[in-house]
């Protein structure tokens, strides 16, 4: 099955709200081997001017994961997870994610390129808070290996 070139430019529906919890931030922070008090200690985060615990910069991947599920579930896209390799990743942030944020993500397929038997899909997931303000955009290129 090959990748549908018409994916380019497609905008997926905004994900349901995701409430960022303290314990989720602690869990994710331990997982990326953080020892930063802003990720674990509410008092330290508040002393630094934040409302609550601060998430590590790559925490936005949890939101991107939700949009990736939309792409994989799109039968019209022609993507199988077992054929997918992560090519590159980028986060452009307006501010860090903080516990208590209610986030949504809206994914746009920025480009679809084929190179040899492989396809490269670049997606941009715009992550906003409950007020609709930009928090971070997560940009990812997935390499989908062709059938061999």
């Amino acid at each position: 099955m090959s990748i549908n070139p018409e994916l380019q430019g497609r905008v997926y529906p905004q994900t349901p709200g995701y409430l960022v919890g303290r314990e989720k931030i602690r869990e994710f922070s331990r997982a990326v081997l953080s020892a930063n008090p802003l990720n674990f200690d509410v008092e330290a985060a508040q002393a630094a001017g934040y409302a609550d615990l601060v998430a590590p910069p790559t925490f936005a991947i949890v939101m991107q994961e939700l949009t990736l599920q939309q792409l994989l579930a799109d039968e019209d896209a022609g993507i199988e997870l077992s054929h997918v390799v992560h090519g590159d990743q980028r986060f452009s942030q307006s501010r860090p994610i903080v516990a208590g944020d209610e986030l949504t993500a809206t994914m746009t397929i920025a480009s679809v390129k084929t190179l040899g038997g492989n396809a490269m899909i670049t997606s941009e997931s715009r992550i906003e808070d409950a007020e609709g303000n930009h928090v971070v955009t997560s940009i990812s290129t997935l390499v989908v290996r062709g059938d061999s």
């Binding site: 990326v32 081997l33 953080s34 020892a35 930063n36 802003l38 630094a48 601060v54 590590p56 910069p57 790559t58 590159d88 990743q89 980028r90 986060f91 452009s92 942030q93 501010r95 860090p96 940009i139």
Partner: peptide
Amino acid sequence: VQPVLDWLGDPALIDDYQV
């Protein structure tokens, strides 16, 4: 990125991170 965050002090000073 953890060593950079510790050096920066405030994680809001990061604008963009890519690999």
